[in-house]
Design a binder for these strands. Structure first.
Lengths: 341, 341
DNA sequence: CTCGTCCGTCGAAGCGCTTCGACGGACGAG
DNA sequence: CTCGTCCGTCGAAGCGCTTCGACGGACGAG
């Protein structure tokens, strides 16, 4: 179609020759950094299309000192909410593309050395860090490297950083407020696996704090306990919870893999939902929708979009807020209701 | 520590000066493309470490005509097996790093234009294409662009390509053989969502073909039907299946999200597992392990490793087989057994 | 002892882009 | 009509690397 041999790089010089202008003019047409007459512009753009020109990414990065690539540092460890991560990643890629950036996938197990390498080699202009822990070793490194970064979740000390997250504390409060308003006086949080709390992962700790705070404020009894993954483990943890606290009538679940098993197990333990026990989850909305579950959705896409938008503003040298918390909302479905007690 | 201002690029010239050699010598030490004396080599490497040198990725790409980056083109559509995708992605990144390559994340919704852009801008040296359909529009494009690629799954025409996949046909056969050997004469495949078959996705079609082939060969009745996602949908589809075919005693499940609901629903329909109905799944092994499920594991990591290894061989100009099928294995657990009939 | 070979290193060129300074020419002000 | 301004374009330099050819010098063969 274009007549060129596939695989051969079309250069800016080819375009310039084809359009009868200087290479710098082509560059200015493409970047818009200088005014170019309408006729020249359209001639150049026609040549770009005719030749199927794409600027060489490496050459561009070298000359402009911008890679137009951001890194997405993913965790991929036990207890991560996998579908949430995927939807988040999609939103990140899509939004980044809209800002003319690509996304490099980095796994956390390369650790701080990975950040060093990526920053040192100018492979990326900035990073998105997921699954940030309260005391995260990568955070000081980010500061030291002067590498623009946006964190998903937030560490204990967020000075000089940019963090985006659902307001999990508020989400925990919302769940308890909803249950309390329906008359529940004893509630329980069935949370993430113990390892997640041990790592000091922010969302788990903050949710728990929110549940406790709201319970304290509203005069509700609240117990909280971790929950391991897998149907058998969930069932076991739920049974243990109800054995220790048989009078719990409101359940907050923050563990994707537990949602299905919890709803399946409760009837077997003689608890009908929502008549005997109300269940509220903090989880992806589709998951909740499938089961008619009352929930506070985790807005993965929105977090991804916001994170990229913030990073782009940082890359442009604009100031950004240290902490951006997304307001949670509770969607009422079939698994929560009043209590007879 | 290193004494340099953070964010300032350390260049090969800095290293050369520090070590008292020419820049080209540093380059040769790092690439190993010419013999360098042991003393020079160690002096250079010491300087590299002292200065914290990382070669500028763009400059390297420009000069060497290699980006040392591969693209991972992910689907992210309905019916994809999300955890499998994640584990696959991790294996890809890890293996690529071992070959000194990074991974660019591309979503399929950028479509063929994305491949054009990526190839044209020399951002990547090759691509890994996931979720390949039997008639995939990206496949001819790959050929046209002369862009080295490895496909996960395989299209109808694999001429000149490199495809890696679990041998899903054989996996389907294995499941039926296992059930037949245990005495089951009527089996059913509860498969992927209908949309997945409609798209012509290879793994779904091949599994179904394998189930049918083995059933025919062994004189077993086999019915196959798609299964939508979500507990309610799964339950509905399973009930419909058993209503139409009440004498089915062997169930093959190829749908991650259906595994839990199927095991939860069967007892409610009066079928104990494995006494009344044996269940065999094709799914990630952890998922099966959690439920004590007999299964043919989908070896996501192994597929990822193989795919990267093949791509690296292609990038080195070595010949690679058109189709690489991984041999499936059946792991017997608690959900399958003999039948009384 | 001499010559050829080859090992180890160097310098220069070039990869494809961006950006800076310069410079015609059009056009408006006086 | 003249001069100054500014718009639109050009050419050159430079980004940091790899790679090629060249060339000392050591060393072995004769």
């Amino acid at each position: 179609m274009s007549g060129r041999t596939p695989g051969e790089q079309v250069t800016i010089a080819d375009v310039a020759r084809h359009a009868g202008v200087a290479a710098s003019t082509v560059s200015y047409v493409l970047s818009g950094k200088r005014t170019i007459s309408a006729t020249t512009r359209s001639r150049v753009l026609a040549s770009v299309r005719a030749l199927g020109y794409h600027p060489h990414a490496g050459a561009r990065a070298l000359a402009s000192r911008k890679a137009n690539v951001i890194a997405l540092v993913l965790p991929l460890r036990t207890g991560m909410q996998v579908p949430v991560v995927m939807r988040f990643a999609t939103a990140v890629v899509t939004t980044a593309r809209r800002h003319d950036h690509d996304v490099l996938l980095v796994t956390a197990d390369e650790g701080p050395a990975g950040l060093h390498r990526i920053a040192g080699s100018a492979l990326v202009d900035g990073v998105l860090l997921m699954d940030v822990e309260l005391e995260d070793s990568r955070v000081p490194l980010l500061r030291e490297l002067a590498l623009p970064g946006v964190l998903i979740g937030h560490p204990a000390d967020s000075t000089g950083l940019a963090c985006v997250d659902l307001d999990f504390r508020r989400a925990g409060e919302l769940c308890v407020e909803h249950l309390a308003a329906a008359g529940h006086r004893r509630v329980a949080l069935l949370g993430a696996p113990a390892a997640v709390y041990d790592r000091g992962t922010g969302f788990a700790h903050r949710t728990r704090a929110g549940v406790r705070a709201a319970a304290g404020r509203l005069g509700v009894d609240a117990v909280t306990r971790p929950c391991e993954e897998g149907p058998a483990a969930v069932r076991h943890d739920l049974e243990a919870l109800l054995a220790d606290h048989p009078d719990v009538t409101g359940l907050v679940v923050q563990n994707e893999s537990a949602v299905g098993p919890v709803l399946a197990t409760l009837p077997l333990l003689g608890r009908r939902v929502p008549r005997d026990v109300s269940v509220v989850a903090i989880c992806p909305d589709e998951l909740a929708e499938q089961s008619g579950l009352t929930c506070v959705p985790v807005p993965a896409e929105e977090v991804g979009r916001q994170a990229v938008a913030l990073l782009m503003r940082r890359l442009n040298g604009e100031p950004v807020p240290e902490v951006t918390l997304l307001e949670p909302h509770l969607t009422v479905r079939d698994t929560s209701g009043g209590t007879g007690r």
